[in-house]
Design a protein around this nucleic acid. Structure first.
Lengths: 252, 252
DNA sequence: AGGCGGCACTAACATAGGTTAAAAAATGGT
DNA sequence: ACCATTTTTTAACCTATGTTAGTGCCGCCT
């Protein structure tokens, strides 16, 4: 809370990222100005727009200001798997400096507002701010942890558990950037098909599972807003343990 | 081949890593000596030994010289999911400098020979050798790509396709460090249970699938040695496209 | 306000893959 | 070489999830 206000009082345009990093490291004024210095160009993507596609050459790194994005892959027969979601404060194409071209689809999942940082200035900023570089590397490593945990879900948890687990994870991640209401309610701008593609189940089964979760009073969904009615039971069902997110101790 | 010999003539102890990196970057003598400088302590793990366990504090990074390792996670009910395999030239606990403690099991899958590099000297080497740091970051990013592709497999490919895909991937990765014979034959020191745990299927089903692959003449297994009899057909079945490994053009 | 298009939901049926149980074969230690 | 373990293989049966085929709802656009 305090951190939240501190960040906003500075009127930073990189609020969400700072929220995510503080608690983890001490975000100095220097880092903040280095970040704002480099976050000059904004871009807006319409829902469904491709930020980048497989085979396309990386040109920039993106920092999400508002909205959701997805990283996804397709099988040769056209089936889609969503690898991960990105929310405000997350980077897109963070590995742009390492690889020439993308191997995945990065799409705006809602209307998306982001800063566009060309690779060159981004790399230079990292060289000048080693502490910040480490913090952002942490961010990337955290994402790998998230993908690993999803792999565990797809490999070894039932569709019901997977779904519960994803909801717990999103809830936690959104909390980090203060996008969850007191009532454990948050916006989840995803169709059941999107969820199915993230969890490796069919659309029909996704629907069965969601209704099951609703019927048993664990969650309630209205419009694209979800409320976790019994967080404890949901986490227990999912076998959710947030260790893999490596969040700072004090996080809610 | 040429690269292979060049590396071996130098009598480097970091052969496999250099093999992996060359082609990607120009591995200078400076980098090699920085690497050998830091790779002084060797450790041998017996098959099944834990290199690190969840909750345990990171102390070192490891560079595999010989043998295989796995990164795996358990569900709360004890089911295991292997996240990835590590082969000679791969690092273990590469994120040790970023996180305090491990969230996964890292185990010696065979008898394992590795260099042990304490975090401090490892970080210092990276700071002194930015080019090498970038190459190793590339390595870490490649692993994330591998995990993502496995997620696609578990989410959207049949058990048969997944199995074929994993075999194609291991074949390709082993080729990078010259551990595949001309005949597309290589050592695969894994029980069917291990493969099952990597692919998110039951042991029994894993057995069905492997016999299917053998019966249809795609592979042959004897002892812990596998031979891909029809690489083209296997890749086609798997929908295998090695783009996600981001290998240099000329790689076999 | 009406109509269109995407989503959510239902139902009946099909199957890939899971479970349990047990035998055969290979491996490794002494 | 022999015994103890581990690993592979078989078989019978079961279920979670997929597929196909719809209906109806809701939000958005004009």
């Amino acid at each position: 809370m305090a951190t939240d206000q501190a960040a906003r009082e500075l009127g930073l345009m990189v609020d969400y990222l700072v929220l995510k990093l503080s608690g983890l490291i001490d975000v100095t004024a220097d880092m903040k100005s280095a970040l704002t210095m480099v976050c000059t160009t904004r871009a807006t993507f319409a829902r469904g727009d491709h930020v980048i596609q497989p085979g396309e050459t990386f040109k920039s790194v993106y920092l999400i200001m508002d909205g959701w994005a997805t990283r996804s892959k397709l099988t040769s027969s056209g089936a889609r798997q969503i690898i991960n979601f990105a929310i405000p404060g997350d980077f897109l194409c963070f590995n742009a400096a390492l690889f020439r071209e993308s191997e995945v689809f990065v799409r705006a999942h809602t209307r998306l507002e982001a800063f566009v940082v060309p690779i060159r200035p981004f790399s230079e900023m990292l060289l000048k701010q080693p502490q910040l570089a480490i913090a952002l590397a942490w961010t990337a490593a955290q994402e790998e942890g998230i993908v690993s945990e999803r792999l565990l879900s797809l490999g070894r948890r039932s569709a019901l558990q997977r779904s519960a687990h994803l909801l717990c994870e999103i809830h936690k991640r959104l909390q980090t950037v203060r996008l969850v209401k007191e009532t454990d309610q948050f916006e989840l701008p995803m169709t059941q098909e999107d969820l199915a593609d993230a969890l490796g189940v069919s659309l029909i089964h996704m629907n069965r599972v969601l209704r099951n979760l609703s019927k048993t009073g664990l969650i309630s969904i209205k419009r694209s807003s979800v409320r976790l009615l019994d967080l404890k039971a949901l986490r227990s069902l999912a076998g959710f343990d947030d260790d893999y997110l490596h969040l700072p101790e004090h996080a809610a």
